[in-house]
């Protein structure tokens, strides 16, 4: 499987500080790849949200190159990896509580984390960020506005009035959302903070990202020399990081045009 990643980080049209933080780590193993993608949105109504987000992303990044690396190479089960992720969430919570006590402030952050290890994904989520999974439509007829199958993998911790009900650093972050599943080829994971999802729905996402895979479906290795191509060259499409980057920028622009003034952070991970 080939993995392509891209990220977008912008403080928005009017904010002075970008309280969103992100971490994107992609390593190639002997038998696959591992990716850590985390986006955090510091709570603007509290103090120093950027510091809270920074604590979360740094901790998870260090964990990825520490304990998680051992779990990856020892090929531990998905249950152990999920438990390890849960422990990190509680450790981040401890760090944030210590930080607030030390600085005598109240602070907090949302967090959406996607961990890909070989052919499996793991999700940890607290707050109002979102993680979407898009899959290329291969069997169903492709209509111009329905080029991808889109699903939101996370639940938004918001009440009916749209207010955040759960975040890291606050007492209510006792049950983060966890999930795991197998990765299929032709998948695209999109995670981002709430600023970039302003006015965005699944239909618009499908229009925006549905054609990153191009028109050809992945083929097998061609055995004959055809049209000047040498044998051994697979005739499949792989979306490159520049395409993903452009799509993320377009998404951010559309959100800003629809009235979003918030910070924006997003990560796209394409699996081919």
């Amino acid at each position: 499987m080939q993995i392509t990643t891209s990220s977008f980080w912008w403080k928005g049209r009017s904010a002075e500080v970008n309280q969103d933080s992100l971490s994107l780590q992609h390593v190639r193993l002997r038998d696959g790849s591992a990716v850590l993608a985390v986006v955090c949105d510091g709570i603007g109504s509290l103090s120093r949200g950027e510091d809270a987000g920074g604590i979360a992303v740094r901790h998870l990044t260090k964990w990825f190159y520490g304990e998680c690396r051992e779990l990856i190479f020892e090929k531990k089960s998905k249950e152990l990896i999920l438990l390890a992720l849960q422990r990190q969430v509680y450790q981040i919570q401890e760090l944030l509580l210590n930080f607030q006590q030390k600085e005598r402030i109240r602070s907090g952050t949302t967090m959406t984390c996607l961990l890909l290890i070989r052919r499996r994904y793991y999700i940890v989520h607290v707050g109002d960020g979102r993680l979407y999974l898009l899959r290329r439509r291969r069997l169903l007829p492709v209509i111009w506005w329905r080029k991808a199958w889109v699903k939101c993998l996370t639940m938004e911790d918001q009440d009916r009035a749209g207010r955040l009900t759960k975040c890291l650093g606050a007492e209510c972050a006792d049950r983060p959302f966890y999930d795991t599943g197998r990765i299929r080829r032709g998948s695209l994971f999109l995670l981002g903070t709430d600023g970039i999802w302003h006015g965005m729905d699944r239909k618009r996402l499908g229009q925006l990202f549905g054609n990153v895979w191009g028109r050809k479906s992945p083929g097998r290795m061609s055995g004959k020399i055809r049209d000047g191509k040498h044998p051994g060259q697979p005739d499949r499409n792989v979306c490159d990081s520049r395409q993903l980057q452009r799509r993320l920028e377009m998404m951010a622009q559309q959100s800003a045009d629809r009235g979003s003034f918030d910070n924006m952070a997003a990560i796209a991970v394409a699996v081919e």
Binding site: S21, S23, L24, S33, E50, A52, F73, F99, K102
Partner: peptide, 24 residues
């Protein structure tokens, strides 16, 4: 017997305006 801790970093990116505190 391969060195099982071998990996190759493809992307390593961290974007935050949060300051790292020594106490943390």
């Amino acid at each position: 017997k391969a060195d099982k801790h071998l990996y190759q970093r493809v992307t390593s990116l961290l974007c935050t305006e949060g300051k790292e505190r020594g106490v943390l």
